[in-house]
Nucleic acid binder design. Structure first.
Lengths: 134, 134
DNA sequence: ATAAGGTCTGTAGTTACTACGGGGTCAAGG
DNA sequence: CCTTGACCCCGTAGTAACTACAGACCTTAT
């Protein structure tokens, strides 16, 4: 497997090309070597790291959290416990967000149901105008 | 009730002071009249509008959507149907987000459970390294 | 009179990208 | 050999929705 250009790496990892450069700028990806004509030159380890990052982002980890995960995943750091903690914190955030959204769902559903009941004024606007959540 | 300063308005409506100025800049709040010394001067109608905006934001409407809601709520526009549509669209988005987050919750929970089972390698990092969602 | 606290403007920082503009480079076809 | 199209370079600016200054001015109370 010979060196990949940034475009090939982007396709291989499923990350937008400009995002790869962005990750390099913020230090999430290492600065790669360059060809004679100053093109970035990547290897399979970059595909792996970038794919890791993409999956972690999809699961909702922040860039900061991913930096920690990557640091913890370096060989020699028997850090499962710390990864666990980080994941548990993130899981808590996800659950909190779900709870919030369910409340919103109930509010919106309630307002819409009153709409279909054919009330004179608009129940959605009423709700927004005067915090009557029920 | 005499005119309110921006700080009083902010407290009365529950919106951060700098956010009030921001809303004015982007045209979400009207430009208020000014005192002789150039202080903004607000009335109760501003408290109402700003509270409406805050509640709509809490329910997750975007600034753009709130602009529409405010336009639709002006007297003379019997627009309950349009408000309904907007709300239904938003409700759809909320439900989609809940569905996404529940998937994430399952993934994270699964990874953590395998952790507690005391496997040799870190299941969370394994999952991120090699898309094995099960 | 002075000190504390409120307000003014404009600008920059936040998160995680995405898009542009103006230029250099590479590979294939004619 | 030259051109055309696709790729790459860098730096900057834009996105959403704020939040946080800095430095100046004003008001209120002691």
């Amino acid at each position: 497997m010979r060196p990949l250009t940034i475009g090939t790496l982007a396709k291989a990892s499923g990350v937008h090309l400009e995002t790869v450069r962005y990750y390099e700028r913020i230090g999430l990806m290492p600065k790669p070597s360059r060809t004679a004509s100053n093109y970035r030159s990547f290897g399979p380890e970059h595909v792996e790291r970038l794919s890791f990052i993409r999956r972690a982002r999809e699961i909702g980890f922040s860039i900061g959290e991913i930096k920690e995960l990557l640091a913890l995943s370096e060989p020699g750091r028997a850090s499962c416990a710390e990864v666990q903690t980080l994941t548990a914190v993130h899981l808590g955030e996800v659950r909190a967000k779900i709870a919030d959204l369910r409340k919103l769902e109930a509010i919106l559903t309630g307002a819409l149901e009153r709409c279909f009941a054919g009330t004179p004024d608009c129940p959605v606007l009423d709700m927004l105008a005067s915090r009557r959540p029920s």
